[in-house]
Design a protein around this nucleic acid. Structure first.
Lengths: 232, 232
DNA sequence: GCGTTACGTCAACACCATTGACATAACTCT
DNA sequence: AGAGTTATGTCAATGGTGTTGACGTAACGC
């Protein structure tokens, strides 16, 4: 079950310092991994580099995570955790709370775009994910929906949030030279498109840079309004 | 500009057969690459395996694509192309046409989930992408929107489509053992969640398998309705 | 049919994840 | 306090990866 949450054991007991003196832990490893990804992009998260950054042998990481994929899931869970810190849902205003929840998740992804892409689409089954789902469902229950509708609406909600988050994180997280390519596309390359073959694209040239902005908040509000308008 | 569309030259001239007799071309390479990914997952798209499948030296691919990333973008463009085949927009019913467009794009991604994830978030700048944008803008212009609003609405539209497509493709494209993990999560693991720590999650257990279904079409209709209701 | 050169091939480089054997520090139990 | 167990960090090796430069030859333009 490679998709799994499980670090190797649930808890470590013996803390033996590494050759260079640092003491390893799942959290410390995730910390360092997140820092690596934030700094230099997803490509720089390799077991070897991670080991070096930790001052440990790369293979030591395998005592905490079964594979690099497991580590990616843990990064994802860390992002969800970051989303949830300081977030206290207000059941009396479920709609505002859910919106805040969505915006926070989106911003977590924007803060760590490259990490978000590593795990953005996976069901992590790790603790923070469970907490997030429980929180979301609670708000929808408070809104008056039954358990079944709460699940359906939460599904639409979280997919919308994650979809936009990932899409925008993908742009955000490109390496500089790629980014210049992708973003510049709207200004430079597409500006030269011919009027005969692509008339509408040609006509829209001055407005194409709008494509750089995010459509997230508008889409989110749209969705919340639709949920609110749903029968209880 | 690694993000770029550019194959190495625009056109090949000399067609020299490979050692094993096959004749290479950008299209033939993309064909084979797509087949590889469809069959065995994204992990099986390596230059070496691709070379072997083509009956050519791996490095021959570099005469057609500058890097593996370039090849990924070409796969993405192929998917957009697949979306557009047999699609003829009907300007007199822009809303139905746009819906059809979105559904087609979504289904292309579902048909090749693993390929969709390789490029789903990139601006390819390749021909089919340009055609798709032009078509979408044309429909929104026909709906009565000015060029600027057409761009804004197209942006929201395509992000919604791609976001859901990618999210669902991610589930679809998991390797079997991962998939069992992710999908099973809703049934098995989450079913055992404790009532005290996560009351709402606990309560919703019987309905969690709903999370497996896609929220795409509902979200799409929602968005189209909102666009339709926007001022011209 | 000659000359140019595009393109397929080969070999090499520097990386990568993962694993099994090993040593030893850190714990448990008496 | 001392012995025994074992968790955990280290080492070395395996078989993969993308990419590149040199090289020859077949395919084209003339």
């Amino acid at each position: 079950m490679a998709g799994g949450a499980t670090r190797v054991p649930a808890e470590r007991k013996r803390r033996r310092p590494t050759r260079s003196g640092t003491v390893l832990s799942s959290d410390a490893i995730v910390d360092k991994a997140l820092a690596l990804v934030d700094e230099n992009g997803a490509d720089s998260l390799t077991m070897r580099k991670l080991g070096q950054a930790l001052g440990a042998d790369p293979s030591a990481v395998y005592r905490y995570f079964r594979s690099v994929e497991d580590l990616h899931l843990a990064l994802g869970d860390r992002l969800i955790g970051e989303t949830m810190t300081d977030f206290t849902p207000d059941p009396t205003d479920w709609r505002a709370s859910l919106r805040d929840f969505g915006v926070r998740a989106y911003h977590s992804a924007q803060r760590h775009p490259r990490a978000a892409l590593l795990s953005g689409f996976r069901v992590t089954r790790l603790p923070n994910e469970q907490r997030a789902i429980d929180t979301g469902l609670g708000l929808l229950r408070a809104a008056g929906f039954g358990p079944r509708d709460a699940v359906r609406h939460y599904h639409a909600f979280i997919d919308t949030v994650l979809g936009h988050a990932a899409l925008d994180a993908a742009v955000q997280g490109l390496r500089p030279e790629q980014r210049e390519g992708d973003e510049g596309a709207w200004g430079a390359v597409y500006a030269e498109v011919s009027a005969e073959t692509y008339p509408h694209l040609h006509e829209a040239r001055p407005h194409l840079p709008l494509m750089r902005d995010s459509a997230f908040e508008r889409a989110l509000d749209l969705l919340l309004a639709a949920i609110d308008a749903s029968p209880r």
